[in-house]
Amino acid sequence: MEEVLVVEELFPYLEEELLKLAGKEHLKYSVLGKHTGNSPLAGENTAEDTAARIAEFLGEKKPDEKHKEEIEDLTNQIKGQLRGAESEIIERPDLPVRPPVLCAGCPHRASFYAVKTAMKGKKANFSGDIGCYTLGNAMPLDMVDTCLCMGAGITMAQGLHWTDPEVVNFAFVGDSTFFASGMTGVANAVYNEADMILVVLDNSTTAMTGHQPHPGTGINMMGDVVNKINIEAVLKGLGVKKVITVDPLNLDETVKAVNKCAKTKGVKAIIMKSPCIALSKPTEKCVINDSCIKCKKCIREIGCPAISVIDEKVVIDASMCTGCGLCAAICPKSAIVKEVR
């Protein structure tokens, strides 16, 4: 064997193991991959790119030429599919932009909205983290200022505090991320006496990646039922003096908790606890009655995917709505009411 082409995503694991093996056993082969520029450092491998790289490796064709041929081939295929006149080329219509959004009824939306409401007109930084709640970044919530890696929101928030102590610093972290790599950051903040508010968005699951268990769920990797680790107890154990647990779907109570914490020094934590909507079947739904004045505050401020304008009327899609009631809580005319499903 003279040469190896390694095609892998993420870390160049096999590539480095092959290099180690070559050194250890004094083998004479070269390894082509991420370290040699033969594979991209980041991003997904596609069938087309991989085929082109293998072809190049085998000395068949340069990828550029291959791509050109592929594009020509595709154009011909599309032409071939045209119904009627072969020469007629139809312009592809512009596709709608479709960014992923927090689900209708997601408790994170309510949590972000409550913090946003409480901090209106005040200087605040919102450090985010990795999870479904990274989507709090999207308009109209616009509540994630930083996003680096799991647990980094907590350490960034305390770092930002030292750059400008006048600004209120928030760190949002999910329950699963908290257990994964959030706790060390909390210890650092407490020990170094930073002023910050930690918001634990506790939805009782690891929603983003498919509802894997974590130490707060009470089910371990083998599926056994085990003792849960209590987030509040962990925080208190780490020396956080003020720990408040609220239901984010109760907007007033949550806003009050945020205001209370914003006024005090040190590390404060608010656990906003409400289960992921994917875990339970909704029992209620919201409907808009005739007192709606079409101000569209519900659309402009919370960005719930269940609310849209159809034939100039603001409507709630009953199949999506979970009856979280956030829209009802902010409606200036109390035109949104909860109904039993």
């Binding site: 219509p93 709608p96 960014p99 402009r300 960005g303 849209s308 304008v309």
Partner: peptide
Amino acid sequence: KPVTESLNPTGYDGSEMITY
């Protein structure tokens, strides 16, 4: 319809896609 459609309407209703 994407949520962005409610915030900034472009009139997307799918019919153009079906025609294409």
